[in-house]
């Protein structure tokens, strides 16, 4: 009998506040000041130009709908000049949808260039490129360069470092501690540096992807699982 009474009390203790919350919420939605939020506010449109790809006399803009409303791109300005464009998958992007804008534009190597996308209701979205240059293509030359880069930055320093090993082996005491703490300090510094760069990259992401949340999630995941 006691046990059942206790169980009932437990359930009541949980159910009662829940029911009250549900009632309050229902009342708020029906009669509360929610009308203020349903007011005639203009739709929030947000278009994010993620990347600009330059090819000979052609430019491709990779765009992303960052906002809660669909956006229709009506016209495009390059350097404050109306220019014809083609857009895939179509001129209208749904929220969180990506698209590509193709322009046949005679851009000048080394000069800055600016783009403005005008939505059908007049809202404008801009992108400035400080220096226009041909976007590197993925070919054998590209691969070769990066292999060599990897050698410069990765393999050679490590090999050079390894050459010190016979000397380090014979170190004892203070000198050894000094070198060890130097290494640890360097690693901690690199950690903070990487964190700093991550924050910078977050700023360059579309808001809808919640860069800060992603960073927090992955960092925690790394420390917990890794």
């Amino acid at each position: 009998m006691e046990k059942i009474k206790n169980k009932l009390r437990l359930i009541a203790g949980l159910a009662l506040p829940l029911v009250l919350i549900a009632l309050m919420f229902g009342f708020f939605v029906k009669n509360g000041p929610l009308g203020v939020f349903k007011a005639d506010m203009p739709p929030i449109e947000k278009l994010f130009i993620e990347r600009v790809v330059f090819e000979p006399e052609q430019i491709t803009l990779e765009v992303f709908n960052d906002g809660p409303e669909p956006v229709t791109v009506a016209q495009i300005l390059v350097h404050e000049i109306i220019w014809q464009f083609e857009m895939t998958p179509g001129n209208t992007l749904q929220p969180l949808e990506s698209g590509k804008v193709f322009l046949h534009y005679p851009w000048t190597d080394g000069d800055p260039i600016s783009f403005t996308l005008i939505a059908s209701d007049g809202v404008t979205f801009g992108k400035e490129v400080d220096v226009a240059f041909m976007t590197p293509k993925f070919n054998m030359l590209y691969v070769k360069t990066f292999v060599l880069l990897g050698l410069y930055v990765g393999v050679i320093p490590v090999l050079l470092g390894l050459l010190f090993f016979p000397y380090l082996r014979r170190l004892r005491g203070g000198a050894y501690m000094f070198l060890l703490s130097l290494t640890v300090g360097l690693l901690i510094f690199l950690g903070f540096d990487t964190l700093g760069e991550s924050f910078e990259l977050i700023g360059q992401l579309p808001d809808a992807l919640n860069g800060l949340g992603l960073l927090a999630m992955y960092m925690t995941g790394f420390f917990v699982l890794g």
Binding site: Q84, Y105, K137
Partner: peptide, 22 residues
Amino acid sequence: SEVGEGEFAKLQQMAQEKIGAT
């Protein structure tokens, strides 16, 4: 990236025709 001479001339011509509204 290398683009052939003829191809480049065609691209230049095409770019000239793209002034104006879409």
